[in-house]
Amino acid sequence: MKKNILAVCGIALILAILINGTQVQSVSEYYLTHIDDLTPESERVTISIRCDAIFPHYDELDPALRSEEFLPPDGVILPPTEYRLREGDTVFDILNRAVRQNHIQMEFQGAEESPFGSVYIKGIHYLYEFSCGPLSGWVYRVDGAFPHYGCSRYTLRDGQVIEWLYTCDLGQDAGAKWIGGREN
């Protein structure tokens, strides 16, 4: 009789485990697969990608790009999205993670090829530098301000808000006063 009770308990336990899920992971595996999970205590940043500055300059846009495939009707390529901040993450790291997670096309020049010693973003979502006039290209803002240096040199802090903006006049449409094209 005792054996029967034990067996019933055993079956109940097994079913309980099965219902609860059977993920069995080592500590390092757990850490690896949950590295980007957002928990209430994790540090985080917000990133968005927009190209609505093109609309007032639509006649300057490369004719090959004049379709909804490249230019979303609302100008939003990525709405504000939260990502977990890892130690030492730069603006470029978060952008790269965001475009990969969301299958957004991006082309950049590596830091070693760029005279600025920083990664340079050439195009996002098929919109490139000079796609919409001579002063067009991608700029970024952190907490509303335009940093004076490349995105792979900007280390982020908890809670910061990154905006990638397509500009048609060297950032002035987005409120920047200084951004210059020094590259020949």
Binding site: P147, H148, Y149, Y154
Partner: peptide
């Protein structure tokens, strides 16, 4: 010097 940026 840009005080905003410890890296520059």
């Amino acid at each position: 010097y840009d005080p905003q940026n410890p890296n520059a």
